[in-house]
Design a protein around this nucleic acid. Structure first.
Lengths: 342, 342
DNA sequence: AGCATTTTAGCAATCGATTGCTAAAAAACC
DNA sequence: GGTTTTTTAGCAATCGATTGCTAAAATGCT
């Protein structure tokens, strides 16, 4: 039906050549200002829209990013993507989003698709099931930019953007400052890198403060809220119970809050609580929950910027060194860890 | 650098013509089975990946969907998108995601971009600021499929997928059955269609039960949690206070829970609470919150399926009637509205 | 064997935008 | 006025895959 207007249509209408139109549309120096203006106005009138496919085919540049994440409907990832999109759109790039569903096979498929689409860059946060890097190496072999973020393959030399665990150190400092003395940790599944990293950071932070690490105060099996409840009950029923808890995910802090109420332990007076991720609900509970902000949106911004930096660098030097950008996490203090009497 | 393998490379390697390769790769009847096999194997060996741009340019079919939503990092939208992606990927389609940030201008830009990308279909949930439909009509004029979902322009004849307010009716039924008698409503900004629809549904549901609607029990200004807290305080301090609350968003129920605790009103014994959207945290609070599930993932699935249905229909009849699919919302009952003594 | 029919594969144009090169027109110079 | 220089615009090839048409090869038939 309504065939789209092409530069040839415009050329015909103005009795010019299509190459003139093409150049006129982008103010190329070959074309006089007057004809360029004429061309541009006619293009507008004829409702011309450039065909990205044709342009991409000719120039080899798709102005497309491929983003692969385990799941798009997880706050963290959709926030990162929102950040990427923000920067990309400003530079006239678009993003294609794929989900690996934490499966290696699906991740491979996503990569195939994105290669076919001729994306300029693949931005990926690895699936939980991914253990090899063959598929990632293929991206590099095809001369497509590769940026890993959050869940990265440490060994592979690529551009990376990762979180650090600063927030845990800040949380320990903060809790000690608030007068808490026995700090417990609710850890997540230890086969997922971010969770063991958080646990390691927790231990390191205590050591840094010369506090002896009590393994009994570390609960490593808080996969679900129910498990978290059980763990917290165990902790809070100890003869010498902890007076503060740092959780490795926000949902665990809800468990802590609940058990505290059940055992009639006052938060934050008798128990300080800090979570991780700064999910929306943390400021909606009573008391509001302290939590570690991962700056996920900023991570997305950093990922996209990294691409544009590298592209710029490429003009000057062919083999640019790969960068690793660290997004600092940060404790957001709310009532759950702020003692009234302090 | 590493130029990608094309069908011409394969043709050269096998001393065949590129057209033969092209046909061989898709088992076209012109090509004998044996050469087809040979071609396919060589393609594999040479690590051939079809160039989607070239293919799209020639065939005019991009196998791309454009999805426009106000914000990707809102649970509802990222869930819908996840649903779309699920179906799309199965059919070998990819999606490009754009955010309108609830701005009309940004929404127009998104549409321009997607038109340029030659997407097969634009799936859109309108920005709050959008009041005209000129930009939508342009999509149609360009013969691009248009599917509206959730926040739709009712007047425009397009394919649509929307939620209904069944859940509100169910909630009223459920609350009455549980013995609650004075039901209040926390309404959201009335300029956003989904909120006034929910309020209308609330009123309609009461009328259906022949209950006189008391305007004092409808709080229409719960934009933020703070506003919600204020409204709930007013409601619960009334001499003849409501014994149940249906909120039009889940964050409002947190406000209700909080005020109830503050005023020492027991939930669910003295106050029943139902929210809307079935956000993740609703099952994490104590008591767990009843909420209306919008089946957002299913909505995405329906949106994508609608495209494929229409495409199929198109083969048979040119002017297919536009469909409007309704996704039924459904109350999920949890402790906050289940009276122990019942 | 000789002719008709079916299979199989190649040719060349096409999709729309881009770009190196060339040619024509205009401006500048002596 | 004539020649050189600069502006301006057109020609044609190109990116890679697809496809209608044609030609050659293989097969079937009498």
């Amino acid at each position: 039906m309504s065939k789209r207007t092409t530069i040839h249509d415009i050329a015909r209408a103005l009795n010019l050549h299509s190459s003139t139109v093409s150049r006129g549309l982008k103010n190329h120096s070959y074309i006089s200002e007057s004809t360029a203006r004429l061309i541009q106005q006619t293009a507008l009138e004829m409702n011309y829209k450039p065909n990205a496919n044709a342009s991409n085919l000719r120039t080899g540049d798709s102005h497309l990013f491929g983003v692969i994440v385990p799941r798009i409907n997880m706050t963290f990832f959709s926030d990162v993507i929102a950040g990427i999109e923000e920067v990309a759109n400003r530079k006239n790039y678009n993003i294609i989003i794929c989900q690996s569903h934490d499966s290696f096979e699906k991740e491979e498929e996503c990569i195939q698709t994105l290669i076919n689409q001729n994306v300029a860059c693949i931005m990926i946060s690895l699936a939980a099931a991914t253990t090899t890097d063959k598929h990632l190496k293929e991206i590099i072999a095809r001369d497509i930019q590769l940026i890993q973020f959050d869940r990265v393959n440490e060994k592979l030399k690529t551009n990376k953007v990762v979180n650090n665990e600063d927030g845990i150190f800040q949380a320990i400092d903060h809790l000690l400052l608030q007068g808490y003395q026995r700090i417990a940790h609710l850890a997540g599944p230890q086969n997922i890198s971010i969770y063991w990293k958080r646990k390691e950071a927790f231990i390191a932070a205590l050591r840094k403060k010369q506090i002896i690490v009590n393994k009994n105060l570390i609960a490593s099996d808080c996969f679900t809220k129910e498990k978290a409840v059980t763990s917290v009950r165990r902790l809070l029923r100890m003869k010498h119970r902890p007076d503060a808890i740092i959780a490795s995910a926000d949902f665990m802090t809800l468990a802590a809050l609940e058990v505290a109420r059940e055992l009639n332990i006052k938060v934050p007076e008798e128990l300080g609580i800090c979570g991780y991720a700064n999910e929306g609900f943390t400021e909606l509970t009573t008391p509001a929950l302290s939590s570690i902000n991962q700056h996920s949106f900023d991570m997305g911004v950093a990922v996209a910027n990294l691409f544009f930096d590298q592209v710029k660098d490429k003009d000057t030097k062919e083999n640019t060194r790969k960068k690793e950008i660290i997004i600092h996490s940060q404790l957001i203090t709310r009532s759950s860890s702020l003692r009234k009497d302090k």
